[in-house]
Design a protein around this nucleic acid. Sequence first.
DNA 1: CGCCGTTTTGATAGCGCTCAACCCACGTGG
DNA 2: CCACGTGGGTTGAGCGCTATCAAAACGGCG
Lengths: 252, 252
Amino acid sequence: MTEHLRAHLQTAQEPAIFHFGSAMRDLTEGDWLALNNLPVLHRFVGRGRTLLREGDPVSRLRVVCKGWAVRSCRIDDERRQILDFILPGDIVGLHVDGHGASLADIEALTPCEVGEIEMKAVERLAIQSPGVASGLQDILVRHLAQSNDHLVRLGRMNAYERVCGFLSDIYTRQKDHSPGPVDFPITQTIVADALGLSVVHVNRQVMQLRREGLVTLNRRQLTITDPDRLADASGFRDRKFSHNRTTYLAAE
Amino acid sequence: MTEHLRAHLQTAQEPAIFHFGSAMRDLTEGDWLALNNLPVLHRFVGRGRTLLREGDPVSRLRVVCKGWAVRSCRIDDERRQILDFILPGDIVGLHVDGHGASLADIEALTPCEVGEIEMKAVERLAIQSPGVASGLQDILVRHLAQSNDHLVRLGRMNAYERVCGFLSDIYTRQKDHSPGPVDFPITQTIVADALGLSVVHVNRQVMQLRREGLVTLNRRQLTITDPDRLADASGFRDRKFSHNRTTYLAAE
DNA sequence: CGCCGTTTTGATAGCGCTCAACCCACGTGG
DNA sequence: CCACGTGGGTTGAGCGCTATCAAAACGGCG
């Protein structure tokens, strides 16, 4: 398939399908055509609303086409853990238990546009198309890599390193499209719940980073002065993790 | 297929293949026959030896047929994080980056017998057999669920809850075969590196649990007096996690 | 027997939490 | 136009959970 044709196919379609297919590697022209036949249900979710609740049966795969969301577990009234951040183009609905029930809540950080695709239909497609089947596996494996990084962060990094690594990650995941500042629709409370810290302590680390001139950030935007230095400060030796792993698709 | 035939097929084969297939659901007779044709390379790994090193290209899937191992990341000279525990029957080699390189070291806690299967061969098989393809996905999804639990543990549980939850997990993962005590070839240093705590503090929590009469454990065996009480003490409301998730295959 | 890895215990220090207060930006309604 | 409420950010004081350091006991193994 020529590059030209591929580009045409990729841009010609439904955004949800485009993102879904783009997350896979080595799709053939036929795979793309088949993907395009998948029916997509559109939904809009307001900020703060729950897209999917823990324990809900997941029969549809969700592609978040616009907006940000988080996947989080509530432990009790005063504790919750944010498991990952969902950026535009990310896919939701793969974290399920043995009965197909969601392992966590998905909550919109900003208004979201979501495309929903029947899991059954995707599975049928995967049977016919090896490219889609292995693409699904790619997506799952990438989630595993992300969990890995987060586990190391929570288990063995101190507060300063956690914040550095987190900001570095969020930065790198968006860096492909635009130089300069990136979106950051995240409160410090959210950061705290993601990093297993208290809000107050997150704030102290952020203040520290500002004093050191490493970052500029507010509720809207994040600017990183020296990405390499920030990544170094995140504790992962030679930036191997956040650079090659969480964002390893972008690296190709 | 009759139960009798299934039982026959499952027991008639190579242990590595048996475990591999058993980790999947809804395999047809044909799937099992095809699995049995996969060539298996046998390896033996001594205690403390490294089965697979971080960064190594993973071209073969490993089934640990006998023995225990851990998957761990070294951060620097004095810090490491253990990401999960590999028990007999577990599958290794799915945690890879975008280039197929291992994300972590796999280290044998006890002497291990490992069956190695060419990834390429498995992929070829998955193309022909939908059961195997979706079985592979099952395995990946189960790993995701495990990571989830561990993330919550590291992010939002205190030392006591972490130890309770950990012991509870190890117990539940083996409980299907034998009542009473279960294997526990794990030093407190290993527990510490898994739970993001210091050895000394792990020991204090274990001592506490012993004083409370909840567990008996040494370097060989773990006995849990009242599994329900221990699970309650792990902080997960209604034992939903460790019960339904990490071990959700056993629940079926 | 002697070595070494592991477990246990005490004393001390420090990282990060809690509580509390204050500030700011923003939206809402009178 | 201003009063007010609300959500988020910032800062200080004090405490508690967990780490670190140190030492001793234990147990397996050559």
